[in-house]
Design a protein around this nucleic acid. Structure first.
Lengths: 243, 243
DNA sequence: TGCCATTTAAATGCCAGACAATTAAATAAC
DNA sequence: GTTATTTAATTGTCTGGCATTTAAATGGCA
């Protein structure tokens, strides 16, 4: 393997890229053991710390895992949806907060994507998904619930809806859009009236899903989107007037 | 800052998590300079290489950038959509290839998400988006185009459609779903007849978009999905019979 | 005073060598 | 044959150092 020591990029970045490309291209397959750090430093003609920095970069992306001990080493990691979720959510959250994305834009994206799952979920949702949604609705109706807990339950409710589509790829892509909204949602104070309205729409949604009524689900989601957007708008207005 | 040296996790992983949490929570804001590596090793009571490994983990996620020189150091990076795209695509691609996701499942997710953008794109697409799509259609009709180039053009075409929705969050989420399909698509050989049919549907799609006809766009996308799925199915069949 | 060249200091990038901790396999003891 | 011990391989971490880069401080000169 050849690394250009005169490149602008760090050696560790170049080495990481080299190994990453090998994984993506299939030259390194899942569970395959990489050469030991000592061997890698020989191959790339760099020191061990530099190799280690490269490996940490890959570990940060869950592309490899390491094991200590005699038969240890770095292994190509089978990237699972479970591992990818949190990274996807972190990235999405930071993208929203660092790029001045308006609540409206984020909300539009979220509900647009979510509504696309509605027909599939109406078709395929299991009793489990329905039960989860009903349970979350119940939680949402409990008095004394903090706004944060209310939002968290809302997210769980909507994830069950998305998971109902029975397509892991959809669930993964949606996770970012739905969960990344939470910090934005947490800026809103939900009055008892607001909650009642949202719960009403959640009930309508669950009912439609139970009846395999795709159009009903879509209608409820459209209602939620407009209600949420308006709620956020009025909160922003109030905050502006105060200032 | 406190780090538990008896934890199961690596020190560098703990330090990375600590800094990452500070960024997510807003304790560290964009463009803020982190303490120097020497200061961090003092604060966390670890050696400099360990701190460096932690910083490389964060750099791999584009959460920080580093600068050499007198006023250099590590700075909280403003995560841009441009930076996040490749990571999103890499992760999505690996998820598909490592988790035995069927072509059908991936295709369903892709077109489900894409169809959700159709109404917005029909409403908001600019002349630029249309021009890009027409140009890609033209490229696709050129004889002698390799299958890979055909697929790449297909991706560019569909990205223009998605971008037409004018929602950067949607564009970001869709990028993973659309681009990650490319390796799967590249396994298919497109006959001249197949290409003609696809180009026909692309034309219908562009026409509908030009006429701000959301239903027409959706119909064309549905046609593309079923055609692509059937094409893949027949390819798999042939391959099975050979073996 | 004002401008340019030089020096200096601070920071990251990289390296060599060592020791600690962990783990599985080989070996020895019973 | 089973258990305890040793050994070897590997990652995790530390110390100390040098190279490189960069901006700011310094000094020389007109």
């Amino acid at each position: 393997m050849k690394i250009d020591p005169n490149s602008n990029a760090d050696l560790s970045a170049q080495i990481a890229k080299s190994i990453r490309d090998a994984i993506i291209s299939g030259d390194l397959i899942v569970d395959q053991r990489l050469p030991s750090e000592a061997e890698l430093s020989d191959q790339f003609d760099v020191s061990r710390p530099t190799v280690r920095e490269a490996l940490k970069r890959l570990a940060a992306q869950s592309l490899i895992r390491t094991q200590r001990g005699a038969t240890g080493g770095a292994f190509v990691n089978k990237l699972s949806f479970e591992e990818a979720y949190p990274q996807q959510i972190t990235t999405s959250t930071l993208l929203l907060s660092m790029n001045a994305i308006s609540f409206e834009t984020a909300c539009e994206a979220r509900y647009t994507l979510e509504r696309s799952c509605a027909p599939l979920s109406a078709l395929r949702r299991t009793a489990d998904h329905l039960a989860t949604m009903r349970a979350e609705i119940h939680r949402q109706s409990q008095p004394g619930l903090t706004d944060e807990a209310f939002c968290a339950s809302d997210v769980a409710f909507h994830r069950a809806l998305v998971d109902g589509a029975g397509n892991p790829v959809l669930s993964y892509q949606l996770a970012g859009a739905v969960e990344a909204m939470q910090p934005l949602m947490n800026m809103i104070t939900f009055s008892a009236l607001d909650r009642a309205k949202i719960i009403e729409l959640h009930n309508a949604l669950a009912d439609a899903l139970e009846a395999n009524n795709a159009i009903g689900v879509d209608t409820a989601l459209a209602g939620l989107e407009s209600y949420t957007t308006n709620l956020a708008k009025s909160v922003m207005e109030k905050r502006k007037n105060k200032a």
